[in-house]
């Protein structure tokens, strides 16, 4: 129950937080508003409140966006990245899922040791071995190839562990029932285990997507050819071009963020749960 004094305090808090959030978001608001402007307009508005207000809706409102999508390869980079993400989601679920399932449910030699190894691998920072990955890919002549980019990214100790933690609580009797229904182990994995674990499959897919979409270092090492670039590397290439205006730059970074916003709004529950659980679950 709120006393009258508490009510007033609460409203003050709301107002303070709204002000704080607007201040906090000023770079984003500025980005959105000015992504629709010409550079002359941006400069002209800079010292006024108009800096945070989009221009009036007219025929040239979307010019920056249109020129990015038609005059540069940015759309192609986005599609590239979507394709890489799709491939890595599928391969990642198969490879890491199968491994997690094996660690959870299949008896094989040294299973407990392997689990420990996977957990130890989780603490190794990827930056440590990225030089060697680069060396491998370069020596194999796989620089500037999709395979060279994708291969080292498939296996992921975190995802193996995550799958294992979920699969271990699947009831064994369903596997036994499926055995009596003439279901082979591999068929069981694809037609039973994965559909029964939709939630973790979704979580892994979402995080794989975000990882691929936002990754910078590895694609910047592997890709130099402009045909294969990911969106983030493409962004760098486009902004480095002297012909690119500030408004166009802001339009590119808005465009690149849209898919992520879509993903977040569809899977916010999984993501927030994932974020919160990193802080609250053991190990």
């Amino acid at each position: 129950m709120l006393t009258k004094r508490n009510k007033i305090a609460n409203w003050i808090l709301v107002v303070v937080l709204i002000a704080l959030s607007l201040f906090f978001l000023f770079p984003v608001i500025w980005m959105l508003a000015n992504s629709f402007k010409t550079d002359a307009q941006i400069t002209a508005d800079m010292n006024t409140a108009a800096a945070f207000i989009p221009p009036v809706l007219n025929g040239s409102f979307f010019d920056n966006y249109i020129s990015i999508l038609t005059n540069t390869s940015f759309l192609r980079y986005m599609l590239n990245t979507l394709f890489y993400a799709a491939v890595l989601i599928v391969l990642g679920i198969i490879v890491n899922g199968l491994a997690g399932y094996a660690l959870a449910k299949i008896k094989f030699p040294f299973r407990e040791r392997w689990l420990l190894v996977i957990m130890l691998l989780m603490i190794v920072p990827m930056e440590t071995i990225i030089t060697i990955h680069f060396l491998f890919v370069a020596k194999l002549g796989l620089l500037n190839t999709v395979i060279g980019y994708i291969l080292p990214m498939i296996v992921n100790p975190f995802n193996i562990f995550l799958f294992r933690q979920v699969f271990i609580s699947l009831p064994d009797d369903i596997y036994e029932a499926a055995q009596l229904d003439y279901c082979s182990p591999i068929k069981y994995f694809f037609t039973m285990v994965l559909p029964m674990s939709k939630s973790v499959v979704a979580t892994v897919s979402v995080f794989t997507f975000l990882n691929v979409w936002n990754d910078y270092l590895w694609p910047s090492l592997v890709f130099t050819s402009s045909d294969l670039l990911t969106a983030q590397i493409g962004l760098n290439a486009i902004t480095a071009n002297d012909n690119t205006t500030m408004g166009q730059t802001l339009a590119v970074i808005t465009l690149i963020t849209i898919p992520v916003i879509i993903i977040y709004s569809f899977f916010s529950k999984q993501i927030v749960e994932g974020v919160v659980s990193t802080g609250s679950k053991e190990g």
Binding site: P27, V28, M31, W213, N214, Y216, Q232, L235, N236, T239, T249, L250, V252, I253, I256, T257, V260, I261, Y264
Partner: peptide
């Protein structure tokens, strides 16, 4: 801002 990638944030 979390939704935005490091490259985007840096460029912005």
């Amino acid at each position: 801002p979390v939704v935005m990638s490091l490259a985007v944030v840096s460029t912005l």
